[in-house]
Amino acid sequence: MRGTSLSRTIKWTLHYAALLAYVAVALFPLYWLFKVSITPNDILYKQGMALLPSKVTLDHYATVVGKSDFLLYFRNSIIVSGVTALASTLLATAAGYAFSRFGFRGKFWIVGLMLVTQMFPLVIVITPIFSIFGVLGLTNTLTGLIIIYTAFNIPFATFLMQSFFDGIPKELEEAAMIDGATRFKALVEIVAPLTLPGIVATVGFCFTGAWGEILFALLLNSSPSASTFPVGLLLYSTRGTVEYGPMMAAGVLALLPVCVFFFLIQRYLVQGLTAGAVKG
């Protein structure tokens, strides 16, 4: 008896030690980001490797918010990511529903084509997009970025949504239609509430993807008025000097909306909403 309880304690300890190590590794970069953002410049290099700074300041945050275009970048990022997330999800939901529920001519090829778009690194299309956007006047605009991000998000988001719709038994809609609903009404009142976790996950996926994107943001939008915050962060590292403090402060601020966003949506990400629909 004692032996088993001892070995259980050991197992338990190892179990949590492993979890703790995992969490520590995952969170350490974030901690470091935060630590640097509150360390005054004069001790930043002197106490470089210390885990805790001996003095704490919010100066960097004041610099970022008060003396830079950060708020503008931030606003741009919110607009671009928000619109991208909504537009991609809306289109992907419609397309995913069609792929899941209808058979139509050319379906195989459309799905194949969408898969193909996922196989190439984006870098190789930058030049053509740049020249096309130049002609259309879409460089240095938020609209341009929104179009690009939405276009790149749609294939994967569509597959994501299709798999969520596939998980909803077709009989549920049919039952609703027999009960007197149109297909659209059945979609809105029966299928959509059940797909909500999927829709929210897709919104989250598209939002974070657009929020952190830098390649296109940097190359297509060079003017500050249309820059997003990842580009703004780069401005803190000029040739020769890197202003670590403000850069990290800006990074922390940039994390906030994503954190808030996921905090708000996490309860929709719970699975199991369709339990009980059909006999299993």
């Binding site: 609903a181 909403l273 369709t274 059909v278």
Partner: peptide
């Protein structure tokens, strides 16, 4: 006629209750 205009009720092999 679409199903809703036929005024017919159906009990499905799988029940198909609205889970929410």
């Amino acid at each position: 006629l679409p199903p809703r205009d036929r005024d017919i009720a159906m009990v499905f092999q799988s029940y198909a209750l609205y889970p929410h």
